[in-house]
Design a protein around this nucleic acid. Structure first.
Lengths: 260, 260
DNA sequence: CGTGCGCTTGAGATACTTCAATGCTAGTGG
DNA sequence: CCACTAGCATTGAAGTATCTCAAGCGCACG
């Protein structure tokens, strides 16, 4: 693995910076790290099929989702450059969801069994991977709040604001106008809404000159207004590089004494 | 720590069985493990206040929840005997949620910093705690599906069925009739509904002779009917003792080719 | 013996869904 | 190069699951 690729990897996955570059190179060597390309709609992971690779997404977008027997779909996460495809794979051979490429993607794939061995010998790596899992857990719980207790415009505004923050943080996009390959059905299945309703809410945001979404491109005209709709403050936008025990994000400011 | 307490701990937390009893005793000693009692409505963890203890719930019920600034509440998890109170604490000093006792509770509390040190020296403990975190992640994602894509009767039926399965699995209850200290507002805040609507759905379940819930006690008259309402099969009821890389639960049987 | 919390129920409101039709664009085959 | 098709976005109209508001009731607690 050449120096340039290594730098690109660390830039997208700042957590790896807590390893020395020697340790990281060793880890990549031991796990047979290689880059893999997938085309749009390719499956990266299939529900029920043993997962052999641990992947770090380098470019492109993907979705991780579940489909119920009657066809209802819930998208659990969108994967963008800097995302780990499937943290679960480190402790589960078979996972109950699928991951599918939305655009063409590039990822760094490591052999899982080798990774587990390598990590167990390297305490710093252990901490890193625990923190990654913990981050995904917090993220899932944040989404639970959104799915359970927010209305449509909040859900959609938050989704857009958070994706923007993430892409901005990882250096993938600069301005609040960028490639946005998600279809309205993706947004619907991530927020628990109907694509028809998503369409109406997007129209509302467009009419208010807040966000326009067209032909795979999004333009955020008024970030403050978007945050207003999203019920977010600017500091909630920051993506915290979660170091072990270093996180101190507080979501809600005031907490009424809850019943019972 | 006497032998009886140790046995009780391992019975409630079968994961600990992958450590030798010597290793476990050593771990408990190093972390200053002690039992702590809380009264109903006591806070076990407060949002924004540094978490010092890692707790294993031995008896009683608790909720882990978030309250939004305008008062909307989302319950993230119910804690019952055999639950870890807050897995996040191993990598976050401060967490964005609170944990509050519902009934009187008893828990085994360990010092977190000591636990982190002890675990990093013991690969088997490392695996155990990673698996615990992974279990919570899968659980949260399962709840995301419910919150996003299921209707009221499915949500409530699933909640009841899963709590029963968990309590049964850990040996806390025998028959499908047991202490159930949750108020209707708890159920509402866990499922993203209103307590008024929860009331109507419970009435529906009562009228159908499926479940009765009264005075802190629940009786499941017809488990098969409940599972029908819950859109669950009997094998989904089983709580898998997730060993590292040993999990193979598949939630959905058929998966239509999803759009895009 | 009041007071408060939780359960219950009715009536009316609404956020979101379902159904259905139209149009646009890109890809495909002839 | 054009006709044909499929997928996606858009919009209207009608339906419904769930919410809001409001009132009454029972029980536990001080």
């Amino acid at each position: 693995m050449d120096k340039a690729t290594l730098d690109r990897l660390v830039a997208l996955f700042p957590r790896f910076a807590s390893m020395s570059s020697g340790e990281l190179e060793e880890l990549l060597r031991k796990t047979g790290a290689r880059t893999v390309k997938d085309k749009p709609r390719d499956y990266i992971i299939r529900k029920g099929v043993p997962v052999q690779e641990f992947s770090c997404l380098l470019s492109g977008w993907a979705t991780r989702y579940v489909v119920l027997p009657d066809g209802r779909r819930q998208i659990l996460a969108f994967k963008t450059p800097g995302s780990f495809i499937c943290v679960h794979a480190l402790c589960m051979k078979v996972v109950p969801f699928s991951v599918q490429a939305v655009t063409a993607t590039e990822r760094l794939a490591m052999d899982i069994e080798a990774l587990i061995d390598a990590v167990s010998e390297l305490p710093v790596a252990n901490q890193i991977f625990y923190a990654i899992g913990c981050h995904d857990l917090s993220d899932a719980e944040d989404k639970m709040i959104g799915l359970g207790r927010r209305d449509a415009i909040e859900k959609i505004s938050r989704l857009i604001a958070k994706l923007y923050a993430r892409l901005h943080e990882t250096g993938v996009v600069e301005k609040p106008a960028f490639e946005f390959p998600l279809r309205q059905t993706h947004i619907a299945d991530a927020t628990g809404l109907t694509s028809v309703h998503v369409n109406r809410i997007l129209k509302q945001l467009r009419m208010a000159h807040v966000v326009t979404l067209d032909k795979g491109r999004i333009v955020i005209h008024d970030l403050d207004a978007l945050l207003e709709f999203a019920d977010m403050t600017r500091d909630e936008l920051e993506v915290y590089p979660i170091l072990p025990r270093g996180w101190s994000r507080i979501t809600d400011k005031t907490e009424k004494l809850p019943p019972t």
